[in-house]
Nucleic acid binder design. Structure first.
Length: 568
RNA sequence: UGGGGUGUCGCCAAGCGGUAAGGCACGGGUCUUUGGAAUCCGCAUGCGGAGGUUCGAAUCCUCCCACCCCAGCCA
């Protein structure tokens, strides 16, 4: 049933295949997903997770989950827990390969000492601003620190005292001795250890010096026997340093660093910095707000992990900056849910319909399939009675040519119910339509007639007395522009937040079958879209649904193009 | 004006010297008790530009253009 085309090749697979062919790494493939626990995972991380775990699966290797926790002031256990939950939910298993860079702090420290012994690192006592000045600029070389030629013994002593807590933050740092004139700024004697008198979420106050990313990452990879260290493009400039450090020391293995382009998605932002701003400014309700591109937001919205994985397979992996159309994500979600979500009826904006020729007080239980193409999903009973509700959008008193739903004098089918014909339109004092008087054809029970009469439309509906009230939250794109990152001088991406990204409809009515809907369960509301029972706010007595994604809507398209033509 | 990258359809993306895969989007048809789904058809004489090499170039060479990344004691 799943017609997803086989994943196409990408340059990383090509590299790995070549490595395997050449017998590199003894035929092993070990990757890792190395998040810093300083925020929640988002769809961009999902790309990396699917890539790294997917590669390991495809090449019979392993993939580690490693927390890159070298900066205690930004990191929290809340984040390490959420990250593990999200990776698992996405469907990946690191087995016993759960690691933390902080597990290696002692080893890393010893490597630093060895680097000093080899004359390849020194303690620099310039302050932060001086270091910046000495570093030079992109177009002019830097100059050597006056502390660059300190002797090994002095460096060893100073570094030991840094570790012992004898100095304040910023007084000294440990730097690799490389080349202050390098055209690559990263290589101008990078800082590899700094003093931070902060408690670490795992090591507590055991350490007051912490390794920098460039030092910790390559060595952590090596310690774990990683073969292919896959990261995003912005680390490309750091690759020479990655190799310099591993070459400068005797290490267990020397992984290959491969960079790929990070994911950009239209109509949203994907950067921890910006996402955290949305949370802190209360523009969204939290990391798991269903409008957020976070894994927890997508999960709460009701997006299945399978759809996210499929999406990650389809976007491919390359080195060119790109912006993926969010319509592709929506397509993947629809494709997955179309196959699996049971169908039910819900009326979001109710319009009362009275079937004048239907016996008062009579209730019929109509049996309807839960999935039109999958009989094995079973059926449910739908009550039919004299008083019903249909969608306000499904009636027009004076319909345009292409509108073929209900209108005065017109006959339509009520899905799995009867054919009805509109006879009267009842209005209130303000002229608003409040009720429709219709007649039904008793011979059309179930939705067909003996004379095989055709109708142009089939409407969804609920029976007034048996329907359950519900709140439905309709989500739209979080931003009004394709690329909120593209701001003019003085503008901020928050200025592009879509004021209609959340629409709460609190007078909705759903068919009784939904009374038992489980938290988090996903349904198709026929003719509307896919909806999930909100895992936080929904209760059996007060149902709350999230719209995961709408159905494709060709009527909306027709309306849009008509409007365009008319307005042109 | 330094260094490192990237440019193939509206959006992704294969292609690795033998004559432009696929998906999404878009347009149209069939079918339909969801204007859903399914299904069929259409959609780059063209690969950032200009030269060159070759029987043959998106693929090789030269020059040019555009965009992205780097000057945290962040990752």
């Amino acid at each position: 049933m799943n017609t997803t085309p086989p994943a196409t090749s990408n340059f990383i697979k090509t590299i790995i295949e070549e490595d395997l062919r050449l017998g590199k790494f003894n035929g092993r493939v070990v990757t890792r997903f190395p998040p810093e626990p300083n925020g929640y995972l988002h769809i961009g991380h999902a790309k990396s997770i699917c890539l790294n775990f997917g590669l390991a699966r495809e090449f019979n290797g392993t993939c580690h989950l490693r927390f890159d926790d070298t900066n205690p002031i930004k990191e929290e256990v809340e984040y390490v827990e959420s990250i593990q939950r999200d990776v698992r939910w996405l469907g990946f298993d690191w087995n016993d390969k759960l690691f933390y860079a902080s597990d290696y702090f002692l080893k890393l420290h010893d490597y630093a000492v060895e680097l000093i012994r080899r004359g390849k690192a020194y303690v620099c006592s310039l302050d932060a601003e001086q270091i910046r000045e000495y570093r030079g600029t992109l177009t002019t070389p830097g100059k050597d620190s006056p502390y660059r030629d300190r002797g090994v013994a002095e460096n060893l002593d100073l570094f030991a005292r840094m570790r012992a807590g004898e100095f304040e933050e910023g007084e000294h740092v440990l730097r690799a001795k490389i080349d202050m004139a390098s055209s690559n700024v990263v290589m101008r004697d990078p800082v590899i250890y700094r003093i931070k008198k902060a408690a670490h979420h795992r090591t507590g106050d055991v350490w007051c010096i912490y390794p920098m990313y460039d030092f910790a990452h390559c060595l952590s990879d090596s310690i774990e026997g990683i073969t292919h260290s896959i990261c995003t493009l912005e680390f490309e400039n750091n690759r020479p340093l990655y190799h310099w450090i591993l070459d400068a020391l005797e290490t267990p293995c020397h992984p290959e660093q491969i960079e790929f382009a990070r994911l950009n998605l239209s109509y949203t932002v994907i950067s921890k910095r910006k996402l955290i701003q949305l949370v802190r400014d209360k523009i969204v309700s939290g990391w798991d707000d269903p409008r957020m591109p976070t894994i927890s937001g997508l999960r709460r919205r009701g997006v299945p992990p399978e759809a996210i994985r499929d999406f990650c397979d389809r976007i491919g992996v390359a080195r060119a900056d790109s912006m993926v159309d969010i319509a592709l994500l929506e397509h993947c979600i629809r494709e997955d849910l179309n196959a699996r979500a049971p169908r039910v009826m819900a009326v979001l904006r109710p319009l009362k319909v009275v079937i004048t020729n239907y016996p008062e007080g009579q209730i019929e239980e109509l049996e309807a399939p839960l999935h039109p193409e999958k009989a094995d999903m079973g059926t449910r009973m739908i009550p039919f009675s004299r008083d019903l509700y249909i969608e306000q959008d499904d009636f027009m008193e004076d319909p345009p040519k292409k509108f073929y739903r209900l209108a005065p004098g017109r006959e339509v089918r009520l899905r799995y119910g009867y054919y009805i014909t509109c006879r009267d339109v009842i209005k209130d004092a303000q002229g608003r339509i409040v009720e429709l008087r219709c007649v039904y054809d008793p011979a059309s029970r179930g939705g067909g007639t003996p004379d095989n009469r055709k109708v142009k439309a089939t409407l969804h509906w609920v029976s007034a007395a048996q329907a359950r009230p519900a709140e439905v939250r309709t989500y739209n794109h979080l931003f009004t522009v394709q690329n909120p990152n593209e701001t003019l001088e003085g503008q901020d991406f928050r200025g592009f937040v879509n004021p209609d990204s959340l629409e709460v409809l609190s007078n909705c009515l759903v068919e009784p079958h939904l009374a038992l809907a489980e938290s988090g369960s996903r349904w198709q509301f026929e003719r509307l879209g896919y909806y999930s029972v909100d895992s936080v706010d929904s209760t059996p007595g007060a149902l709350v649904f999230n719209r995961i994604v709408s159905l494709r809507d060709s009527w909306a398209k027709i309306q849009a193009s008509e409007k365009k033509t008319a307005g042109g």
